[in-house]
């Protein structure tokens, strides 16, 4: 590590930081995707239920009876919101991935001595 120029060491630290950020984004995206899948499944299951069936939704620590229509609207809104967040995370992931690849190419070049450190 001592033989690595300080500028490259900084770049390596940045790469590590980017990798952690990428991991956070990917895991958050996976969590949202799972919640969307679950909500879509609930919407699907509600389709088989009679219009006048008793449907309850979690409100704080209790379950409150709601109309099927209201529950469906709430679930669809939840799905819509989460899908927007997933899209935003995908965008962030793509941008970060691009910056990561660019920086790692620079570091690789610098370490192999084919390119002066820090050149972009």
């Amino acid at each position: 590590m001592d033989s690595i120029p300080p500028k490259v060491q900084n770049q390596l630290a940045m790469l590590q930081q980017m990798q952690q950020q990428l991991q956070t984004i990917v895991s958050q995206k996976a969590q949202y995707e799972m919640t969307v899948r679950e909500a879509k499944r609930a919407v699907e299951d509600l389709g088989d239920v009679a219009e006048d069936a008793n449907v309850y939704m979690s409100v704080g620590t209790v379950m409150m009876q709601q109309s099927k229509e209201k529950v469906l609207a709430s679930l669809n809104e939840k799905i819509e919101n989460l899908e927007l967040r997933i899209k935003s995370l995908e965008k962030q992931e793509k941008t970060l991935q691009g910056r990561f690849e660019q920086l790692s190419a620079q570091v690789k070049g610098a370490l192999e001595g084919q390119q002066p450190p820090g050149a972009s």
Binding site: E38, A39, R41
Partner: peptide, 13 residues
């Protein structure tokens, strides 16, 4: 019986 169908929704069946 009340059945939890996920996403914090419980349905009577």
């Amino acid at each position: 019986v009340m059945v939890n169908i996920g996403a914090d929704v419980v349905v009577e069946r």
